[in-house]
Write a protein that binds this DNA or RNA. Structure first.
Length: 587
RNA sequence: GUCCCAGUAGCUCAGUGGAUAGAGCGACCGCCUCCUAAGCGGUAGGCCACGGGUUCAACUCCCGUCUGGGACACCA
């Protein structure tokens, strides 16, 4: 993969000047980065000594790949293939020259056991054994910081997710974002971004009034409004309110509805907060829609938008001309009767986020809201922003839940689809979170309750947690046996078994996985990596005895392997932390 | 009608333009007198929906077709 000279990373902003303060963590330069720099130097050498014609544009950075096939070394690059055409030279000839330049580079030649040319012109690098230990040292010294990066340093991100109406319990439609959104927040933070997690509360409008009316009807024992809320939870809320405020029943109808509405809202919101908290999902800001209309804030937003020239009046209503930016129709903000359309809130909320200093606004929406994508991007344009840079909309497909082979649809309590809380009661927080996170959000998914309760390979969360618990067990035994392990016992030259090489290689990939998960907004990559890493560990464990057998005396190899185990446990724990899933020491 | 998403092993799904396309399940065959068998190994199973194009190189990018799912409001 080439990165062009002038192309600035998408998410950098002018705030970068402060970035230095945010990055005290890992200053360790990995062997991979050292080699990548060496290849760039080698290319420059080839250019200056005439092997490559002067007109060939050289990449300023390159990214080494990790070959799937171990016969292809520890790292590989196809740079010779990529440059062959513009250079007018056979790729294998470029590769040969590159090979010579690398081996002549004193800065890296000692790290390389072999530089091979393969296939059409791939350059395969095999590390010297002693040079593989760097990543282990780095993991052990960085600890829980290992994997963090500065790829998004200085970027202020507003991450909005869940944003359920406070008129009922959180249900299956919210669970995916509750897990994925929280994980994405963790991943973005690990990449150095300054993340604010926000829950938008729709606390005004017709739905709220219907909610109040429904509760009051339940309290009075009269029929609920047709379009109102019919779940059994309404009864619970009503009786809770009547217990503390019996007088609400006696108020005139409108006041009574409002009283029940406001009290019910407080109860329901608190309930949502409790459930999310139990799910290990946390928010920094609970943003009230109502507040957008307080203190003249909405008018201020309208003025701001007017200055950009896309606001107009038509048939007594105030519109935003979103069709200027690709929306399929213009959007009403203030209806002809003077009331606010929903888009008024969307607009003001957008302005609010930007004025609070966020560079990137991430919206996580359900598939049923995908029609919002165009209008939100157009809104960003209408506000004078660059939608490609300032706004990022993720659409999550639906989740189905299966039990005993049948789809669960109804929740007894909510009278709607199954609630988030019921899901957690069934499978537990770890299994629920992990499963929801491990799939890309743009594909529909099915959660099978029976699988999530099973303790086998088909339940990835246990597979991964088991690897961690297994290592912890080994390390406990190592300690009991008086085996030393840690930074002073890495002994990379002793770790020459194929399984050991694989494991070390997998550990070294972690920082790059985190960075790409952050840039692509795809936390599922962490889970997939984790499964890969756990599998690699289990295979290592099966083939490489860590602790002495019977009366066998302890050797440096035992220490080295225990140290490798310790660093693996650290990376597994760091990965699980990014997903908000626990890393048990015993299972 | 317009727009969005998907189509990869029998099933559920990974796969950020690279070499021989992967995992789990299901099927079949194996591995615990010793560190957690919630584990490991092996066999079988593929026209990466179809047709063009771009590229040294396409499951991956572009265009089109087919099939499946979803969305369209002066509702919230």
């Amino acid at each position: 993969m080439l990165r062009r000279v002038g192309s600035s990373p998408t998410f950098r902003t002018s705030n970068d000047l402060d970035a230095g303060n945010l990055l005290p963590m890992s200053t360790h330069v990995s062997i991979q980065e050292v080699l990548e720099a060496a290849i760039v130097r080698a290319l420059a050498t080839l250019s200056s000594n005439g092997v490559l014609p002067a007109h060939v544009e050289l990449p300023l950075t390159i990214t080494l790949e990790r070959p799937k096939n171990r016969d292809h070394g520890d790292y590989a690059t196809s740079i010779a293939l990529a440059l062959a055409k513009s250079a007018g030279i056979a790729p294998r000839d470029i590769a040969t020259a590159l090979q010579a330049a690398l081996l002549a580079d004193a800065a890296v030649s000692k790290d390389l056991a072999a530089v091979d040319i393969a296939g059409a012109g791939f350059l395969n690098l095999t590390l010297a054994k002693a040079s593989q230990g760097g990543v282990i040292a780095s993991i052990l010294t960085s600890g829980s910081e290992f994997g963090k990066s500065s790829t998004l340093a200085g970027v202020k991100v507003n991450l909005e997710f869940v944003s359920a109406n406070p008129t009922g319990p959180l249900h299956l439609g919210h669970t995916r974002w509750a897990a994925v959104g929280d994980a994405l927040g963790r991943v973005l933070s690990a990449a150095g971004a300054h993340v604010t997690r926000e829950f938008y509360v729709n606390d005004r409008g017709v739905q709220m009034d219907l909610f109040g009316e429904s509760i009051r009807s339940a309290a009075l024992g009269i029929a609920r409004p047709e379009a109102g809320y019919h779940g059994a939870y309404i009864e619970d809320i009503a009786s809770a309110i009547v217990t503390t405020n019996p007088e609400f029943k006696e108020l005139p109808e409108e006041q009574s509805i409002h009283a029940f509405r406001d009290a019910g809202y407080a109860i329901q919101l608190a309930d949502q907060q409790r459930v999310l908290d139990n799910m290990n999902t946390h928010f920094d800001i609970w943003f009230s829609e109502k507040s957008l209309y307080e203190d003249n804030f909405f008018n201020h937003c309208l003025e701001t938008l007017k200055k950009q020239g896309h606001v107009f009046e038509h048939e007594g209503a105030i519109w935003l001309r979103t069709t200027d930016f690709g929306d399929d129709k213009d959007r009403v903000m203030i209806k002809s009767d003077g009331s606010f359309a929903y888009f008024a809130s969307d607009s003001a909320y957008y302005i609010s986020k930007r004025e609070r200093g966020f560079d990137v606004l991430i919206y996580m929406l359900g598939a049923d809201h995908h029609g919002y994508v165009h209008r939100l991007k157009a809104l960003a344009s209408c506000a004078g922003d660059d939608p490609a840079k300032n706004i990022d909309i993720l659409i999550g497909q639906l989740v189905k839940i299966l039990e005993n082979g049948e789809e669960l649809k109804l929740s007894k309590r909510a009278g709607t689809i199954i609630t988030l809380e019921e899901l957690i009661e069934k499978v537990g927080v770890d299994a629920a979170r992990y499963t929801l996170i491990r799939y890309p959000v743009d594909t529909p998914m099915v959660m099978d309750v029976d699988v999530l309760r099973s303790r086998t390979n088909e339940n990835p969360v246990y597979y991964v947690q088991y690897a961690h618990a297994r290592i912890c067990g080994v390390l406990r035994n190592a300690t009991d046996l008086g085996i030393d392990f840690g930074v002073d016992h890495i002994h990379p030259e002793l770790l020459e078994h194929e399984r050991e090489r694989e494991l070390i290689g997998a550990l070294g990939e972690f920082p790059r996985i985190v960075a790409s998960a952050a840039e692509l907004r795809e936390p599922h990559r962490i889970a997939r990596y984790l499964e890969e890493l756990a599998g690699t560990y289990h295979r290592f464990y099966a083939d490489c005895r860590v602790l002495p057998l019977g009366d066998e005396p302890a050797s440096e190899l035992h220490s080295a392997r225990a140290t490798l185990c310790k660093s693996t446990a650290q990376v597994i724990a760091n990965s699980l932390e990014l997903l908000g899933v626990s890393a048990p020491e015993k299972m």
